[in-house]
Design a protein around this nucleic acid. Structure first.
Length: 462
DNA sequence: AGCACA
């Protein structure tokens, strides 16, 4: 049963090979699905899944050439096309005679995943968010995060390779849902491979590492200080790529540093396009976007180490951000987009409301973010164990302006300007005082004497 | 829907 159907010309355009090339597979088609499709025709000796730009192609190598021929000729004459998950799969001989060394590097399945989170700062994605995302696939034993030249990375340890594989298959190439990220983050794609590690050695619970199997592990004090890990890298090898966006850490923040204050300070060097302020580990940071790298470099050079206010208050530490274009709301107390005319901002305010409960993850969000195989794989119990109070971007002890109505500390005197040391550029002197005095006196910010409640750990929770 | 990787 062969000849009748279709286009016979295809059969002769390619020399047979025991390697078949399959395309139009469902996204991230698993090796198991591939094997199920092919094994009726012979013995499969090797596979290569998820190749091509869309990861929707694969290669299958049969032990014998005749087995590959039988599969190709079967589907060439079949009225039912080859299918995976209901999707028609197109099969042809590969132009190579064997699959080369398939399993070797990050593709050999292990229980530990190496996750690269592209396009974000280390502080943009908290370890709790990583935990939440990956817990959907099984119990996460340990997480270690670090920054490398490749970007922000995490090692995530599961119980077994199967669980790790399911997480990888579902999440590789995907993005963390927007509502779990700070608003200034545009997109962040996950690149996932397998680590060679089998058991991570976590020494502390901290903002960069967790051991969920050992609640008694000591807490690293540096978890509380740490506002600046991007400034100095280990062994002084700070591979700082230039950017038009500056990341400012604000140290010793006795006075409020508002969007307006930052705009005044940073406008001295050029047009400020966007600003985003956010909390990181109890400290305050800001992203300041200029139109170009040159302006940012000048600003960085001039402002690094200087204080916004006299007396060593609100000291700036600047580095280049990984961001190039901030995704900020046009106008609120923590962010500003100066490229948008003031008029059209109101309708946008509601757009990115944060779902209040984690339930949003599974219902409304998960389906849109993870099309395909994921939603069915989200076990309810796993996610339910998540503590919603630990939502990212909502540190547990944020000093919200209206939180302390009873405690009326007199606001500190309106800060003087220019910066301590008087090394500010001349033009700053012109516009500085005007900008600042137009500013209301600080209404929030770190109240003197207000500390996080003792015994209540701000970030590592639980 | 159209050929990878160490």
């Amino acid at each position: 049963m062969s000849s009748s159907s279709g286009q016979p010309q295809f059969r002769y355009t390619q020399t047979p090979s025991k390697v078949l090339h399959l395309r139009n597979l469902p996204w991230e088609c698993t090796e198991e699905e591939l094997v199920e499709l092919c094994k009726p025709f012979g013995k499969i000796v090797n596979t290569k899944c998820n190749v091509g730009a869309n990861r929707n192609q694969a290669f299958v190598e049969f032990a014998d050439l005749n087995q590959a021929i039988s599969m190709v000729s079967y589907y060439a004459s079949s009225s039912e096309p080859a299918q995976v998950r209901g999707k028609t799969v197109y099969i042809q001989y590969s132009n190579r005679q064997e699959i080369v060394n398939n399993k070797s590097s990050g593709d050999v399945a292990g229980n530990v995943l190496l996750v690269t989170i592209e396009g974000v700062e280390a502080g943009d994605v908290s370890i709790d968010v990583i935990h939440l995302v990956f817990s959907a696939f099984g119990f996460v034993h340990k997480i270690a995060t670090f920054e490398k030249a490749a970007g922000f990375q995490a090692l995530i340890q599961f119980s077994d390779a199967e669980t790790a594989s399911s997480a990888r298959n579902a999440l590789d190439g995907r993005s963390i849902p927007r509502y779990l990220l700070p608003e200034h983050v545009g997109s962040c794609h996950l690149r996932i491979s397998f680590s060679a590690h089998t058991d991570l050695n976590i020494k502390f619970q901290s903002h960069r590492s967790r051991d969920y199997t050992n609640p008694y592990l000591p807490v690293n004090p540096s978890a509380i200080e740490g506002t600046m890990q991007s400034t100095v890298g280990p062994d002084g090898k700070k591979k700082e790529l230039e950017s038009n966006v500056l990341l400012a850490s604000i140290e010793n923040m006795q006075y409020a540093v508002t969007v307006d204050v930052l705009h005044t300070v940073f406008s001295a060097f050029g047009t400020v396009q966007k600003i985003a302020i956010f909390e990181k580990n109890g400290g305050m940071q800001a992203l300041i976007q200029y139109p170009d790298v040159t302006t940012a470099a000048v600003a960085k050079e001039a402002l690094e180490g200087h204080c916004i206010y006299d007396g060593g208050y609100c000291k700036l530490h600047l580095s280049y951000s990984r961001h190039t274009d901030l995704n900020v709301k046009a106008h609120n107390d923590r962010s500003r987009d100066y490229t948008i005319p003031e008029s059209g901002i109101l309708p946008m305010q509601q757009a990115a409301a944060v779902p209040s409960a984690v339930g949003g993850w599974q219902t409304s969000q998960a389906t849109s973010m993870y099309t395909g195989n994921v939603p069915a794989q989200l076990p309810d119990g796993q996610v339910a164990s998540w503590d919603p109070s630990m939502q990212t971007g909502r540190p547990t002890f944020v000093s919200v302006p209206t939180t302390f109505p009873g405690q009326t500390y007199p606001p500190p005197a309106v800060p003087t300007f220019p910066m301590a040391g008087g090394t500010m550029p001349v033009q700053q002197l012109d516009q500085g005082p005007a900008g600042i005095t137009a500013q209301r006196p600080p209404q929030y910010g770190l109240q003197p004497g207000v500390q996080p409640t003792p015994g209540q750990h701000p970030f590592y929770g639980q």
